Amino acid sequence: MKRIAGLFSHLALALLAAGAVVLALGLIAPRMPAPPPPLTGPVDRIEVVKSDRRMTLFVGDLPVRSYAIALGFDPEGHKQAQGDGRTPEGRFHIDRRNPQSGYHLSLGLNYPRPEDRARAARAGVNPGGDIFIHGQPPGIPQDRRLGHDWTAGCIALSNAEMDELWRVVPLGTPVDILP
């Protein structure tokens, strides 16, 4: 009887060790935390802090949600010209909604503004355009995101986060993009 109890004890320890190895190797993802309660109404403002790779939604002065984001492939500094891979900085507004986006939904920013066009004209360059907040490229699972700055200057979220943003961000919402 002692021998059987000893075998079960060794078997239990071996199973625990195997489980720890499986988790350590990332073969089975740890349980995801429960999602926060859904937002129920429109937000008043969006703030993007590029250096933190973070977007925060506000109702009044109260932050109600925060997301990790990806930016343009060369995100430091204000966008100067088409193709520079930078995400613009300053105050913008949501000026269009695109449910047929090549990415998972997209909300357009009013870039380039008149001052962006004037600066680009002085420099003799095209300021670029079509800056959006959008989801992931086709084929990326709903709750996943590419793990690096990969856009041409846009702001990217997971598709699930973009679904939430789409529901609560009306046209005209101000978007502050900080360095």
Rank of each mutant, 00 (worst) to 15 (best):
A5M: 10
G6E: 10
L7N: 08
F8P: 01
H10R: 13
L11H: 13
L11I: 14
L11G: 14
L15D: 07
A17R: 09
A17Q: 10
V21N: 07
V21I: 15
L23R: 12
L25A: 15
G26A: 03
L27H: 02
I28W: 13
R31W: 14
M32F: 10
A34I: 12
P35N: 05
P36H: 11
P37I: 08
V43N: 08
D44I: 03
D44Q: 00
D44P: 03
S51C: 02
S51H: 05
R54M: 11
R54W: 07
R54P: 00
M55N: 01
D61H: 12
D61M: 11
P63W: 15
Y67A: 04
A68M: 03
A68R: 10
L71K: 07
F73D: 04
F73C: 00
F73G: 02
D74P: 02
P75H: 08
G77T: 00
A81M: 15
Q82H: 12
G85P: 08
G85V: 06
E89H: 03
G90K: 01
R91A: 13
F92V: 08
F92E: 08
H93W: 15
R96D: 13
R97V: 11
P99C: 00
Y103N: 00
H104G: 02
G108T: 00
G108S: 09
Y111C: 04
P112C: 14
P112T: 11
E115F: 05
D116W: 07
A118L: 12
A118G: 00
P127D: 06
P127Y: 03
G128R: 10
G128Y: 12
G129M: 06
G129C: 05
G129L: 02
H134C: 08
G135W: 07
P137G: 01
G139W: 14
I140H: 02
R145Q: 13
L146H: 10
H148E: 12
D149K: 04
G153L: 03
A156H: 00
L157P: 06
S158C: 05
A160V: 08
E164V: 01
R167Q: 15
P170G: 11
L171C: 08
P174T: 09
P174Q: 10
V175S: 05
D176E: 15
